[in-house]
Structures are given as C-alpha cells and as structure tokens.
C-alpha cells in the first residue's frame, strides 16, 4: 500500500502537529491504565501491613540499575529528538538505536531479576504483593517492548531523513514509559 496521507492529516487547527496530538492523547489514556494499577496497588499496600515483609525481598540494587538504564535511555531519546530538530536524520537514528539498546538492557536485567525471584519461590501467585509486583512491572515491560519495536521502525525511516517528526513522537512515548518506572521504582523497591 503506497504512502497514503489525506489532506486531513496535513491540517492543524489547534496548532499542534496531528501525530504529536495523537501521542499526547495516547499518553493521557495510558495515564489512566497505569493509574488503575497503581491506585489498586497503593490501596492494598496501605491496607495490608503484612506486605511490608513481602516487599523486603525485592532487590533494590537491581531496581536502581534498571532506573539508571531507563533514565539514560530517556537521555538518548531526547538527544535523538535534538538531532531530528537539527534535521540530522542519521544521527537521530543512531541515538534511537542507543535507546533501543537501553530498552534491551532493561529487559535483560528484568528477566534475570524475575528468573531469580521465581526460582526462589516468589511467583505471581505467592501473595498479593508479588501479584501486583509482576502485574505492574509486566504491563510496564510490555510497554518497553512495544516502545523498542516502534523505535526500531522510526529509526529506519529517520535514517533516510524521512518523517523526522516521528522521532519526537516516539520519544514522548518513551519518556512516559520512563516516568511510569520512576513511580514504580519507589512503590515496588524503596518503600518497605
């Protein structure tokens, strides 16, 4: 199917680029998805004093490393956006690939962490805390995977200096994934 761009897509009555506007709406809808999980978790956590002991088994060093990885990948994502604003597509693509690298590193660390925990008996059905731990981090991880795939696709077009506005759009999504983790980190690892 050839590239298809209706006249509608080229209009901008609000002054915000249409694709960016759609990403902001997407983020607004993601806010309520993660909001639902985090609100549910928070209520249960406050209502269940016994969960503090369960939470003591999470590995905050791994949490710290993963936060570091995601914050750094946010930096590379914004540098990709910066390069795209200077209309340097190949550089933007390289920074995006670095961000994808960060996503992969994050997922590898996460798999190692989960593998260790599951082999110690802390499975998703062990108790309420671990159920929320895997569910919240799992929904987040699925966003990391999706973000990585989209960034690969965007890097491929940006490399050819095409559709450079997509670099910023995928960057916005990636920063949002980062922000979710910024809140998951204290919720799951720090507050014990």
């Amino acid at each position: 199917m050839a590239a298809f761009k209706p006249i509608a897509t080229t209009r901008s009555a609000t002054g915000v680029l249409t694709s960016k506007l759609a990403v902001w709406w997407l983020l607004a809808s993601e806010v309520v998805i993660f909001g639902g999980v985090l609100c549910s978790y928070l209520m249960h956590r406050i209502a269940h004093p016994e969960w503090a002991a369960y939470a003591a088994h999470t590995n905050e060093w791994i949490g710290l490393t993963n936060t570091f990885v995601l914050l750094s990948s946010s930096l590379t994502a914004v540098l990709a956006h910066n390069a795209a604003e200077r209309e340097d597509g190949p550089l933007a693509a390289r920074w995006l690939l670095a961000t994808v690298g960060g996503a992969c590193l994050f997922l590898m660390i996460k798999s190692f962490e989960w593998y260790t925990e599951i082999s110690h008996g802390y499975t998703i059905s062990a108790n309420g805390f671990w159920s929320f731990y895997y569910t919240a981090a799992g929904i987040h991880a699925s966003h990391v995977i999706a973000g990585g795939l989209i960034m690969l696709w965007v890097a491929n077009t940006a490399r050819k200096n095409e559709e450079l506005h997509r670099v910023e759009n995928v960057g916005l999504y990636w920063h949002f994934v980062d922000i979710v983790w910024i809140f998951l980190f204290p919720l799951l690892y720090i507050a014990k």
Binding site: A28, V31, G36, C39, S40, I124, S125, T135
Partner: peptide, 30 residues
C-alpha cells in the same frame, strides 16, 4: 478514553486471577 484505563488494568488482573492463580479479587489471598 479517560474511563476505560482502570478497567483494562482490572481485566488484566482478572485474567491473572482466572488463569495464574493470583488473588487480586480474592479476600483469602489479600
């Protein structure tokens, strides 16, 4: 868009309750 998010989260939780043995909605499991 603004209302369906919590239910999507809830649907994932219910799916896990059905198939993975979690207890999000089971008072016996907290």
């Amino acid at each position: 868009m603004a209302s369906v998010g919590p239910l999507i989260a809830g649907a994932v939780m219910l799916l896990f309750d059905q198939n993975l043995g979690t207890g999000f909605f089971d008072p016996d499991k907290g």
